[in-house]
Amino acid sequence: MIIQSRRVFIAGQFIKAQIEIEDKKIKSVLPYGKEKPDRDYGEDRIVPGFIDVHTHGAYGYSAEEGEPSGIKQWVSRLPEEGVTAFLPTTSPNPKETIIKALKSLREAKDMKMKGAEILGIHLEGPFFDEKFRGANEPDIVLPPSVEVFKEFQAVSGNTIRYITMACEHDKDFELTKYAVKNNIAVSLGHSGAKYEEAVLAVANGVTSFTHSFNAMLGLHHREPGVVGALMASNTFAEIIGDGQHVHPSVINVLFKARNNTKMVLITDSLMAKGLGKGIYEHEGRKIEIDEKGTARILGTDTIAGSSLKINRGIKLLVEEAMVSIEHALLSASLYPAQLIGADKKKGQIVSGLDADIVVMDDDYNVKQTYCLGEEMIR
């Protein structure tokens, strides 16, 4: 199959080009009009497939539930927003619940369902700082432990690729170093680390910061905290692009402080994503989705996640946070791929990589998504 457009996102810029797809891969990237195309998308933008490395659920399904029909729905509908690959993300829970979730997610990954590809698992918690645990219950917090993590990884079938933890509680950075040695990306999050502690965590292998500004020690002129470290470092940094978790002007400041590089757009979405405004049951408690799509614990102002779609997040970055379209697209494709070590297969429109491709109009509506070369939107 050959598709083409006058605006194809290649090497960080838009050019006229056509893409030849064969055997789930990008076979060639050719000059526009060189061969007769099967699909001509005119002025619509052709961009790399989006990768969401931090999402807890959608369409009524949570990563903890383990119901095959639920995750099938999740996988099949993510391409509607341009997501071609993702890391289902566990929530901080009692150890037994996490083990159950990891087992079910491993089984789901092995099923190779049609839709967005499960690249592995993001383990968020239970290795948190108690004060910065966010909307999570205090009894789920555990100190970082190599032995506990080995148990989690064994149950997951070695599919954990990314872990969020409060590294200031990781004695001698033992778990951090163990994870890095085993090619697992470590992200500092739900953390009360002082600036120097955060910098030391980076020196010992931390390569990312989880949902920047949220559930971490903030920036103060006498104690820069985790936020100061993430703004000054050369690591990756997640950002929830819904405009509610982080004000668009602050997103703009963060992109500028980091020279627009290594920013990773995430949704941090919950099971209520795609279900609309209302009250829902999530992990034994009620959450409310407001008219802006933000999830809060019912009756409180505590944010408990989002219902964001990645394509809407890109729109917010560009139109409200004043980030360039090129850098916004990189934050949803190449940088998340690099973060989890998937950039040899995904994240760019390059010959030999997986044919994960999205077609968007100028209002960021997804017109078509190709997952491994197959059209997902009929």
Rank of each mutant, 00 (worst) to 15 (best):
T235C: 14
L330C: 03
K277I: 01
K262V: 04
M271T: 08
L265K: 07
K344I: 12
I266K: 03
G284Q: 11
H327D: 11
E288K: 10
G347P: 15
I310S: 05
E326P: 08
G225Q: 04
K277N: 01
T235W: 03
I289T: 09
D242N: 09
H220V: 03
R258C: 06
S233T: 04
N259W: 06
I314A: 05
L230Y: 03
G299C: 07
L230H: 00
F255Y: 12
H245Q: 03
N252L: 00
S249A: 15
G228Y: 09
A295W: 06
S331L: 12
L219P: 00
A295F: 11
K315W: 04
A328K: 02
I251N: 01
S212Y: 00
E283P: 00
N260Y: 13
E291C: 05
K315A: 06
A237T: 08
Y280G: 10
N252M: 05
A328R: 05
A257S: 14
H247L: 11
D301I: 03
R296V: 13
A342P: 03
S333Y: 05
S307D: 09
L317A: 04
T267P: 01
S331V: 12
K315N: 05
T261N: 09
A237K: 03
T261Y: 03
M322W: 13
T210N: 10
S324F: 03
Q338M: 14
I289W: 01
I297Q: 12
R258A: 09
R296W: 06
H220C: 08
G278Q: 10
E288S: 10
N214F: 08
G241C: 15
P336E: 13
P248A: 04
